[in-house]
């Protein structure tokens, strides 16, 4: 049975999935999400444990941290994105993995981030997991609504065009660099904001949170869910985060089954669970 604690983790997974999806909607395979997630989480952990560390923190302060994290990750994404987005495909993926490693090693070695133990005793804005469910759920709803609006907007269509053919879309007059950079920055901001919520929810933050493993896990959310609609990564994130916990009754075999799902998912659903055709059928359906 799913409890509210797991529900929070599922929603955070969905948000990270969306963060990987955004550059992919513009045809860019970026694995930088954990780097920005780690920056957001570290920022929240540092800010909220300053001073005499009270056990609770106001919601306003958390929102402030989220704003700061969004600003910081956006600046970092702009700085990194300009040179890195000149690369394509697998080369872009490799350079974003490098970014993840740089951020991880930096957090590990900076004098104020607690080294390998990390920062602990992060104060809580909510006493019950339900508070986190509502808060992160609202964040997911907002992100989902923006993505839904994006698909019909000029920017969204430009992203889709670049994804289909970058050269052709540039010939059509689309400023491809700007569009790709926008998607990259939006993805970074979403990951940073998610990191803030995750740091409070996890009570502790360390360099392991933004590792290469997270990059692969979040990529799996998009692959299993489907990368052609924003609902794909959301559903992929929700399902794949919940699955290892739901499989607990099978005992030691649970991770074997989990691996099987990841393996067989793309075999049976090569475009992911949520495909454009499925959404179209759903849209035409009349009760």
């Amino acid at each position: 049975m799913i409890d509210n604690g797991l529900l929070v983790q599922m929603i955070l997974g969905a948000l990270l999935g969306l963060s990987v999806y955004l550059p992919m909607a513009a045809g860019q395979l970026s694995l930088a999400t954990p780097a920005f997630y780690a920056v957001g989480g570290t920022l929240a952990a540092l800010l909220s444990t300053q001073g005499d560390t009270p056990s609770a923190i106001s919601l306003g302060a958390v929102l402030g941290e989220m704003l700061l994290a969004a600003g910081l990750t956006a600046a970092l994404a702009l700085l990194v994105g300009l040179p890195v987005l000149r690369l394509r495909g697998i080369y872009l993926a490799i350079s974003t993995i490098a970014l993840v490693e740089i951020v991880r090693v930096a957090i590990l070695n900076l004098p104020f981030t607690g080294g390998a133990t990390g920062i602990f005793g992060i104060p809580q804005p909510f006493q019950q997991p339900l508070g986190y469910v509502l808060f992160s759920g609202s964040l997911l709803a907002l992100a989902g609504w923006l993505c839904q609006r994006l698909e019909a907007s000029r920017l969204g269509r430009s992203m889709a065009a670049i994804r289909d053919d970058e050269l052709a879309s540039r010939c059509m007059g689309i400023h491809t660099t700007r569009v790709k950079l926008t998607a990259f920055v939006a993805s970074a901001m979403l990951a940073g904001v998610t990191g803030v919520v995750a740091a409070h929810y996890l009570n502790t933050w360390n360099a392991r949170q933004g590792s290469f493993d997270v990059a692969i896990t979040t990529l799996a959310f998009v692959i299993l869910g489907g990368s052609r609609s924003w609902l794909g990564p959301v559903i992929g994130g929700l399902l794949l985060t919940a699955l290892p916990e739901l499989l607990r009754p099978v005992g030691d075999l649970r991770l074997v089954l989990f691996g099987l799902v990841i393996l067989l998912g793309p075999v049976f659903f090569p475009q992911g669970l949520i495909t454009p055709a499925l959404l179209e059928r759903l849209g035409r359906w009349k009760p």
């Binding site: 989902g144 609902l231 959301v234 929700l238 499925l278 759903l282 849209g283 035409r284």
Partner: peptide, 13 residues
């Protein structure tokens, strides 16, 4: 139709 389907699925979710 796709957008309407998206909205419906999101509401259900």
């Amino acid at each position: 139709a796709r957008r309407r389907g998206s909205a419906r699925l999101a509401t259900a979710l």
